[in-house]
Amino acid sequence: MGKKVLITDDTAFMRMTLRNVLEKNGYEIAGEAEDGQQAVERYEQFKPDLVTMDITMPNMDGITAIKLIVEKNPDAKIVVVSAMGQKSLVIEALNSGAKDFIVKPFQPDRIVEALNKVTGS
C-alpha cells in the first residue's frame, strides 16, 4: 500500500497537480488542506505518512503549521513545496522541522524523488 500524503496548498491548481503526480507514483492522497490551519487539523485526523506544505497561505502560513504539527508529532515528515525567492522562509521552515523542500515550479520526478527520500522508500 502506498504512503499516505496530505497535500497543503492554497491554490486548487497546485493541489490538483500534486495529487496527480503523487497518485501516478503510487502515493495515496490522505487529504488536501487549503491553509495551515486545515493542514494541522487534517494531520491529526488523517495521520498521513507525509505532508507537502506550501509556505504562503491565508489564515495560517506553512511555517506556523509545520511548527504546530511537529510539536505534537516530532516524527512528522513534512516536505515544503515553495515558490522561488523564498530562501529565508524555506530555511525557517527547515529549522521548524520540515524534512526537505522542493521549489515550484517543480518537475514531477523531482517531487517524487524528494518524497521517496524523505519516506526512505
Binding site: D10, T11, M14, T56, A83, M84, K104, P105, F106
Partner: peptide, 11 residues
C-alpha cells in the same frame, strides 16, 4: 506569489 508558482509549474 501564487500566480507565479502556478505559471512556473505550467511552464
Amino acid at each position: 506569489h501564487s500566480l507565479k508558482g502556478m505559471a512556473g509549474t505550467m511552464g
